[in-house]
Design a protein around this nucleic acid. Sequence first.
DNA 1: TCGATTTCTCAAAGCGCTTTGGCTTCCTCC
DNA 2: GGAGGAAGCCAAAGCGCTTTGAGAAATCGA
Lengths: 360, 360
Amino acid sequence: MIGAVVVNLKELSKLLNLSQTTISRALNGYPEVNEVTRQRVLNAAKATGYRPNIAAQRLATGRTNSIGMVMPIGADRDTDLHFAEFLAGMAEVAISQDVQLIVHPSRPDDEEATFRRLAAGRSVDAVYLSYIRRGDTRIDLLKSLSLPFVVHGRSLDGPHDYPLLDIDNAGAFVDATRLLIQLGHRRIALLNGPDNLAFAISRHEGMVGALSKYALTPDPDLLQHSPMTEENGYRGMMRFLDLAEPPTALLCSSMVLALGAVRAINQRRLTIGEDISIIAHDDVFPYLKPENFSTPLTTTRSSIRAAGVRIAERLIGEVAGLRAEPQQEIWKAELIVRASTGPARKAPKPGGSRPAEAAE
Amino acid sequence: MIGAVVVNLKELSKLLNLSQTTISRALNGYPEVNEVTRQRVLNAAKATGYRPNIAAQRLATGRTNSIGMVMPIGADRDTDLHFAEFLAGMAEVAISQDVQLIVHPSRPDDEEATFRRLAAGRSVDAVYLSYIRRGDTRIDLLKSLSLPFVVHGRSLDGPHDYPLLDIDNAGAFVDATRLLIQLGHRRIALLNGPDNLAFAISRHEGMVGALSKYALTPDPDLLQHSPMTEENGYRGMMRFLDLAEPPTALLCSSMVLALGAVRAINQRRLTIGEDISIIAHDDVFPYLKPENFSTPLTTTRSSIRAAGVRIAERLIGEVAGLRAEPQQEIWKAELIVRASTGPARKAPKPGGSRPAEAAE
DNA sequence: TCGATTTCTCAAAGCGCTTTGGCTTCCTCC
DNA sequence: GGAGGAAGCCAAAGCGCTTTGAGAAATCGA
């Protein structure tokens, strides 16, 4: 096995006294080549360390065997953590299918150009799109381009007539909110992601919807939209706790926000699950698990890595032309009750607008 | 600006009544083309949405304008967090230099094959290598391949005669250990990364070296090697605290480990910076900052994102052929003292092992 | 036995670019 | 006015693969 020197088809064909055609076919498993010849070729290829030149292969076939990921850079860099975990999922599939993963970093204002370049330059077979924003134009752009894609998440309005995979964000937060209400909580705060991102908006809507089902009105003071850092979790929670009438329960859009919120609560010497209940959304990070919080956290769980796996599979399927209809896939998040949720300590203040008695 | 239809050089040349040569040259900024012609070409290219086919470009030039990252998958998946941050750094550079980032997931047992494939397939111009292990053979392999590379980290033994960027892991932990000793600490524990990874070994060596300078012997009971998760931080710290003679100070190889350690300490109602001092290594994550811990953490700091930036720059330089000598670059980590380090509470007991007073 | 298949192999075209080498013009300068 | 350059353009080769269309050899059927 020679290291440095690179051998190509022509040389191999000279070496074996066979045409390039035959060698190419032998290597790529075509049937019209004699089995003993094939073995001869295979052996020689291994002996010389032959690997096809990928650029040439791509040019000839028009396929690139690669999927592109447009990685947001700049403003929402706090999402790295999720991106990494998602990437790990895609990687699992990529490796088993022998597909390259191409990361295209792109600033938000430049994304459109990036997609156009990808499509026209034929540098990837398919792309995945994420971090969908309010009024996002990228989906329409992709629909107009002849480039297979799958969206992780979905647009807020407009028809969902494109391939997508999303979790039921609204549903998850409806479930979480309902649980809290049933436990007697009336003042429920939300530490959410940036307010231009679709997932955050949906979660907020889920919460508001659940509240209104029980004739509760959301208090704007109990809402924070921000990048999902520990620090923002802490700050937000501190602000909530400083209110004249602090919340008795908290919803968190991410584990990292929850980390900060817990710190704030501890600092105030309040007891989680008693003085204040918490439900966080858990994207399942191997290094930060809700069950390992000082008070194990009740969560709505959906593995973002699994989403990466699934989307990679579907992208590969799209390329292979297996797609029938644009496929919409919505995953339910699982509500897992742990120790951070308990009955509301005190009944909501009697005066003022007393909410309807929620059913049980 | 047409969306779906893809135009190529030939069509453009027909459209403009110019040869492909001239168009190619106009587009790529060669001097031997008339300025008005160039403008004509540029306009037409923009109007038709022309983008060169990347595969063709690569085949013709032999350059790929891409750098490969072999992403470890499987066993050390806990390192994702660092990988992501590093990736973000590389991405910054990639975008400004118009270079693609290709992620090659690879299982440890398969890495060698992956590199060979990369080199022979000419699918990337250069690669970066990380997560160097004890007795790692990959560096020698890369040296034997005709593929530019930069190593993030370095081998434990053997000459460092290859391009590398590393932080002074040993030095950082010498500094940290010395500070603790000067504060009067004698029993210092270490929560480290996996014991087959070079960076972890160097840190351990740094600590041991500093101890021995003060004639202190490391206690094997005060050492844990493990993947760097919150859970492992908690478990390790708990074990330390349960010792007959628990440590009065702790070194942590990562912020995430520190997170777990802090949880353990809080649970035992000990006070950080008084009952026990902590110094953690901080790779600088935007979402988890040491100054935001309930007790701000003293750290050895070195931005892994900055390392990504630098390595990307150097890789691009290597490809451009700017390299003179293999370049070794060692960054010092900065020791930043915050509230988590304080004087040792009690001198270590002279006599036998007195059980720890688990407060309350 | 001979024509019809089947099996195996090959030469050559083509993918869409870049780059070499050469060919016109048009100046410039003595 | 003509040698010598410079400026601007082009035809064609080539990058290393896949794939088409065809041909030689072997096998088969009757």
